[in-house]
Design a protein around this nucleic acid. Structure first.
Lengths: 79, 79, 79, 79
DNA sequence: ACGTTTGCGCTTTAGC
DNA sequence: GCTAAAGCGCAAACGT
C-alpha cells in the first residue's frame, strides 16, 4: 500500500473522530435543551435559570482566579 | 417538608443536571481540540481539516434542505 | 467647548449613525416581507420560497468554502 | 410561451428580488459594523455602545406601546 | 388569535 | 488582540 493511501486513511480517521465527537457534543446540547424544557413544564422560568447557571459559572471562575492568586502568593512566600 | 423547600430542591436539581451536562459538553469540546492537536502532530494542517469538517457539514445541511423542499412539495400536492 | 462635551457629541454622533442604519436595515427587511406577501398573493408558497432562497445561499457558501480550501492548499504548496 | 414557463419566470423574478434585497440588507449590516469599528478606533467601547443602542431601542418600544394604548383609549372613547 | 416551532441576529468564545 | 465561527436567545412565521 502506498504512503499516499496510508496518509489519506489516517486523515480520514481523524476527520471521522472529530465528526463523531461533534455529534456527541450536539447530543449533549440537546439534552440541556430538554432539561430546560422539562423545568419550564414544571413552572420554572428558563430565562432566569440560564441567568443562574451563567452567574454560578462566573462565580466559579472568580473563585478559581482567587485560588490561583492565593496559590501564587503561597509559592512566592514558600508557605 | 414545606412546598417552598420542595420547589427549591427541584429547581436545584434541574440546575445541577444542567451544570453536569455542560461539563460533559466542555469535555467533548476539549477532546475535539485534542484530536486536532494530534492530527497536527502527525503533519496535518488543522486549518484545512476544520474547513473540510465545515464543508462536509454544509453539504449535509444542503442535502437535508433539498429533502425538506421535496417533502414540502409532496405535502402540498398530497402524494 | 470642553473635551468632555466634544467626546460626548462624537459618541452621540456614532450612536445616531448606527440607529439610522438600523432603521434602513429594518426597512429592507420589511421590503423582503412584502415581496413574500406579493408572491403569496400570486399563488406561490412562501415556505418553499424561503427554503429555495436558503438553499441557494447554502450552495453559494459551499462553493466559497471549496474555493477557500483550494486556495489554502495552493498557499501551503506555494504553487 | 406556455403558462408553466411564465410561472417559472415570475417565481424566478420574486426570488431574485428577495436575494437582491438580502444583499442590500447585508450591506447595511456591514456598514453598521464599520461604524462600531470606527468608534472603537476613536477610543469608544463597542460593547457598551451596543448596550446603549439596545437600551434606547427598548425605550422607543415602550414609548410606542404607551402611544398605542393611548390611541386605543381614544378610539374607545371617540375623542 | 394563539401557541408552537423554526430561522435569524447577536454574543461570546476560540483560533491565529 | 483581532477576526471569524459556533452557540444561544429572541422574534417572526407557520399551523391550529
Amino acid at each position: 500500500m502506498a504512503d499516499g493511501t496510508v496518509a489519506a486513511d489516517q486523515l480520514r480517521l481523524f476527520i471521522e473522530r472529530i465528526e463523531r465527537l461533534e455529534e456527541e457534543k450536539k447530543g449533549i446540547a440537546d439534552d440541556i435543551r430538554d432539561v430546560y424544557a422539562e423545568a419550564k413544564a414544571n413552572g420554572y422560568d428558563a430565562k432566569i435559570m440560564r441567568m443562574v447557571v451563567r452567574l454560578r459559572k462566573m462565580e466559579t471562575h472568580t473563585r478559581q482566579e482567587q485560588d490561583a492568586i492565593l496559590e501564587t502568593y503561597r509559592s512566592a512566600l514558600s508557605c
